[in-house]
Design a protein around this nucleic acid. Structure first.
Ligand code: MN
Ligand code: MN
Ligand code: MN
Ligand code: MN
Lengths: 221, 221
DNA sequence: CTTAAAATTTAGTCTTACCTAAATAATTTT
DNA sequence: AAAATTATTTAGGTAAGACTAAATTTTAAG
């Protein structure tokens, strides 16, 4: 049976919070899901009791996904990211507007709908923010991008991915031309404040750590 | 506040069942909603108690929509029919496949999404089955079509609307070329079985009442 | 190592939207 | 007009998923 919308949201957040290899804490989940910690404990216990279990859970030790849970999470994430790509491509949404809409649609589209938009988009590998889209057989491709913050003077790169949810930040980056697919070149690095001076097209901008750690690039050889 | 998915479905069904001018019965609603009559009574009482009331209800006398209820129903119907049109246009769904998908999406799309697809489609007035789409300000246009069953020999007409939910019937009609926008001409009428012999393109078919009462046309002057 | 603070879990409620079984009302049949 | 049938409502439950308040554990500080 297909998990409820609530369960899908829990699994998706657990996936995201455990990408660093560590279990997700009750509090972190509560914050991400806009729900009280007590509710999270209740849901986690339920997910751990499902057959097959969707999460691995030890009291007070946080929670991780089982393989069944991970599969269900990737299913939702695939829907979400394909939807974002599709809303941008076919309805002219901007990348700061798509998230909310995809957040609701992801739970109700059919597998047929999923196949149709994937095909219509040419089976894209990244969403409008550059996040990798899980494949049709629910494997997450490995991301080999590098944070812009680790580049130094004279290095050139292509922006692959921007990790930001805040629409204001996204619009700001858009206005600077810092979007996936764009070529950039690092002009200067300041070791005191970690600022990077970056050339984008013919414009040059000085970017702080708060921005350069959120942009992931592929370095030019 | 936006009504729940359940309430939206109740209001939509009540709208449809009361289009003939009569109140909708508990049993009919239960059948349409795949729910038990007792559940319908419960929900109806709740909808009648809302402020403002969404339905008018007298015990044992059936239920009708208030103006607030009708507005909420038209909102859902507009979503449904725009979605159907859009799924057919942009994702290549056939008219027998769209209904189910739209039935789920209608509850979760934003008003922004609604505006975008309406604009992308050129503000269409009918969905793929020819059903009228409520306007953006939630008025239902008047339908002035005539059932094909009432035409007689030598009359010509354009198909406007096909009232059928059964995918098999829809596919059959599609195979006969009986779809909205198509020109037809009545060759012969049989008063014994009410069959109509109809020319569609260069093909001629004999259609029974079960089909001719489901096809609505605009008669050529 | 003991205490204070923070995180987590338990216990008990609430709301929504269903259900079944039983009671009542309305409609048909005889 | 009474009896039988059908439709509808009431009463009492269940399941999901949230919440608050209180109890317990874990972690951090002194
Ligand atoms: Mn979601
Ligand atoms: Mn899927
Ligand atoms: Mn429909
Ligand atoms: Mn709307």
């Amino acid at each position: 049976m297909k998990p409820s919308t609530s369960i899908q949201d829990y699994l998706k957040r657990i996936y995201e919070l455990t990408e660093n290899g560590l279990p997700a804490s009750t509090n972190d989940l509560a914050r991400e899901l806009n729900v009280r910690p007590a509710s999270v404990t209740g849901m986690i216990q339920k997910l751990a009791a499902e057959k097959p279990a969707l999460v691995e859970y030890q009291k007070h030790q946080g929670v991780t996904l089982t393989s069944a849970g991970k599969r269900a999470a990737l299913e939702v994430i695939r829907h979400h990211r394909l939807l974002e790509a599709w809303l941008v491509q076919t309805l002219g949404y901007s990348w700061d507007e798509v998230h909310e809409e995809a957040e609701r649609l992801e739970h109700v589209i059919s597998e047929d709908f999923e196949r149709r938009i994937a095909a219509a988009l040419g089976n894209p590998t990244r969403d409008p923010h550059g996040e990798l889209i899980p494949t049709a057989d629910l494997k997450m491709p490995v991301d080999d991008t590098t944070p812009l913050s680790s580049l130094r003077a004279s290095q050139s790169a292509t922006i692959q991915r921007v990790v930001a949810a805040d629409p204001n930040l996204l619009r700001h980056l858009d206005s600077l031309g810092l979007t996936p697919g764009i070529q950039i070149e690092v002009i200067e690095y300041s070791e005191f404040d970690n600022n990077l001076t970056v050339k984008v097209g013919r414009k040059v901008n000085v970017l702080g750590l708060n921005i350069t750690t959120k942009i992931f690039v592929e370095i030019q050889k």
